[in-house]
C-alpha cells in the first residue's frame, strides 16, 4: 500500500481558501467525511484539534500535517489542501503553511499511522516537489506528482 492509494484525487483541495487553522482542519475533515471514513466526524475534528493543542504539527517549510489517532476514525484517511497565500498554523519556524496534509486513523494501528506520517514528511522534505505542488493547476496534477515521486519508495506494508 502507498500513501497515494489512501489519498485519492477526490481528497485533494486546490485551491484551498480558508482563513485560519481550525477552519482549514474543518474543511479537510469534511472532504474525508464524503468518503465515509468517520463514525463521528465531530469527535474526529475535536481529536485533531486536541493533538494540535499539545504541539503544533506545522513542521516548517510551509508544511503542516494535522493528524489524530481516534476510535471515531475506523479507517485510515488522508486529505490534502494547497493554500496559495498560506494559513497560520503556529508553525515551529513561525512561517505560514501552504501545504496541509490531514491524516486520521484508528487507535489500534499506531504502526501504519507512523508509517504514513513518515511517508508524508519524507516526500515533503523534497524542495523541488514542494514547489511543483504549489505550481500545480488542479487536483489531478497534484495526485500525479505525488504518485510519481512515491514510485521511488517501497510499499508501506
Amino acid at each position: 500500500m502507498r500513501l497515494t492509494d489512501i489519498l485519492q484525487e477526490e481528497q485533494i483541495i486546490l485551491p484551498l481558501k480558508t482563513s485560519d487553522r481550525d477552519e482549514t482542519i474543518r474543511i479537510l475533515i469534511e472532504k474525508l467525511a464524503n468518503s465515509d471514513i468517520f463514525s463521528d466526524k465531530e469527535q474526529a475534528f475535536q481529536a485533531v484539534l486536541d493533538r494540535e493543542k499539545i504541539m503544533t504539527t506545522g513542521v516548517g517549510n510551509g508544511i503542516a500535517i494535522p493528524h489524530c489517532k481516534h476510535n471515531s476514525c475506523p479507517e485510515f484517511g488522508v486529505a490534502l489542501g494547497i493554500h496559495a497565500s498560506g494559513v497560520d498554523f503556529n508553525a515551529i519556524d513561525k512561517k505560514k503553511v501552504n501545504i496541509i496534509f490531514l491524516l486520521v486513523g484508528p487507535e489500534s494501528n499506531p504502526g501504519l499511522h507512523i508509517k504514513l506520517l513518515s511517508r508524508i514528511s519524507r516526500l515533503m522534505s523534497n524542495e523541488e516537489l514542494r514547489d511543483q505542488l504549489l505550481d500545480s493547476k488542479n487536483a489531478a496534477e497534484v495526485h500525479e506528482l505525488l504518485k510519481e515521486e512515491e514510485n521511488y519508495y517501497f510499499d508501506l506494508d
Binding site: T57, P110, I114, K115, L117, S118, S121, R122
Partner: peptide, 20 residues
C-alpha cells in the same frame, strides 16, 4: 519504525507513537 526514519521523529509525540 521511527528509529530508521528520522525525518518524522521531530514531528512525533508520545501520543502519536503509543499503543492504546
Amino acid at each position: 519504525p521511527v528509529l530508521f526514519d528520522r525525518d518524522v521523529a521531530p514531528l512525533l509525540l508520545a501520543t502519536d507513537i503509543m499503543s492504546e
